[in-house]
Amino acid sequence: MHENLVQQIKHDPNYKELVSKRSSFSLKLSLSILVVYFSFILTIAFKPELLAITISDSSVITIGVPVGIMVIVFAFILTGLYTRRANSEFDELTRKIKDKINE
């Protein structure tokens, strides 16, 4: 990539918008999954008995089961949120940046 092209893209407001929006969005989503997963793992490490509580007196199912399934579902939902926004909003910004170069 030529230096003048680098400078041009760098100062393109669309590029700045793309980078700042995407970085903050990816960071928030990454932190969400990290916090959820590490809370789960640290609970297992320090307070496993919390997950061993049964969901009702008549049931043998522990809270750990729905919680575990929820972590899996949560991970999937997050990838869906990111893919939807990136494939519309972020790709639109990228297209604008590319159009400007081709002018």
Binding site: S26, L27, L29, S30, I33, L34, V71, I72, T79, Y82
Partner: peptide
């Protein structure tokens, strides 16, 4: 499984 969101975001 939880590595996958990280792969996507990063």
């Amino acid at each position: 499984l939880v590595g996958w969101p990280i792969i996507l975001f990063m």
